[in-house]
């Protein structure tokens, strides 16, 4: 296996990781600030992708599509927060699980009701299509490179938002002591709506960006949701830094595991058995990683110890 191939696979793992980060960042923020387990986060990913596909079909502009994805997901998030989620903060995790599970059903079938059962079309914009050649002669799709850059920019933006702005101070205060910030006169319900909408918008952005190279269809958010949960648990719930590291770890493990595990097994096994066992193990790899992390560090890599 050549170095070029290994580097290309690492890039792929990174790209997958930063997209997971967009999902996981919102999830971990919402959990950190409001203490809410949101199973419906995958629905915002789907809403983003559908909104982008619809607007791209109307206008032909990818940039407008992305804007639409952000707005649609943020609006859906704010709406859900104000009508349903707001009543759940005081309840235990179980009611949250049930209510957000119910939201998945409503969003998924509602989307199918509006857009029909057939997958939608969303394509990479012309100016980002095709491969470019990186130093070392690696041909790599430009769009995926753009995804990595967007993901990293969002990470920097979130870091700046939380460390440098007034909203960030309120968010950090909210994570530590909810009564305190209410006492300081912060409009806490507005803060919660904003955080929730921000998380939803990030998920919607991820859905639209990834939708251009995947299939825009009902139910697309659920597999990603599970992965995003894995990410935030590995990183430590509530920690943006943890979500970032966790996302990269999961992205790299999943991508590299699928490629290298069958090869590793081929070293000491018969060819087709090695392919089968290696592939099976690869599909379990991130869950094994997650259990290993939790067994060694029960609150994740960057979680506050309990």
């Amino acid at each position: 296996m050549s170095t070029v191939l290994i580097i290309e696979q690492i890039l792929n793992g990174l790209q997958f990781g930063v997209m997971l980060f967009l999902m996981a960042a919102g999830l971990t923020l919402i959990f950190g600030v409001m203490g809410l387990i949101n199973l419906a986060h995958g629905s915002f990913y789907m809403i983003g992708a559908f909104a982008a596909a619809a607007v791209a079909a109307l206008t032909g502009s990818f940039v407008l599509a992305l804007v639409a994805a952000l707005i649609a997901a943020a609006l859906a998030g704010a709406l859900v927060e104000m009508t349903v989620i707001r009543r759940l903060y005081a309840t235990d995790h179980l009611d949250q699980v049930l209510a957000t599970f119910a939201l998945i059903l409503v969003f998924s079938e509602g989307t199918r009701w509006i857009f029909g059962s057939f997958p939608l079309f969303l394509d990479i914009p012309e100016f980002l299509s095709g491969p470019i050649t990186l130093p070392g002669g690696i041909a790599y799709p430009l769009y995926r490179l753009a995804l990595i850059i967007v993901g990293l920019l969002v990470a920097v933006f979130l870091w700046a938002l939380i460390e440098k702005t007034r909203l960030g101070i309120q968010i950090r205060a909210g994570e530590n002591d909810r009564e305190m910030i209410a006492a300081l006169g912060v409009d806490i319900s507005r803060l919660y709506t904003m955080v929730f909408a921000l998380g939803a918008a990030l998920a919607g952005l991820a859905g639209a960006l990834v939708g251009a190279i995947q299939s825009v269809q009902v139910g697309m958010g659920e597999p990603v949701l599970i992965l995003a949960f894995v990410v935030i648990v590995i990183g430590g719930i509530g920690s943006i830094k943890g979500a970032f590291i966790g996302a990269l770890l999961v992205g790299l493990t999943d991508t590299l595991g699928g490629i290298f595990l069958p090869e590793v097994f081929k070293l000491f096994m018969e060819h087709s058995a090695a392919t089968t066992i290696g592939s099976s193990l690869a599909s379990m790899a991130i869950y094994i990683l997650m259990s290993a992390v939790l067994i060694l560090r029960p609150t994740g890599l960057f979680g506050a110890s309990q």
């Binding site: 995790h93 949960f229 648990v233 099976s280 599909s283 379990m284 997650m290 939790l294 067994i295």
Partner: peptide
């Protein structure tokens, strides 16, 4: 024994992870 080292949301998620491991194992158990 492994999951009870954690608690709260981490417990929810580690049990989910074990579920996924069994799921993918069963799918490829020809």
């Amino acid at each position: 024994a492994l999951s009870l080292r954690t608690s709260g949301v981490y417990f929810i998620m580690i049990t989910l992870a074990f579920g996924q491991m069994f799921y993918y194992f069963a799918i490829s158990w020809s």
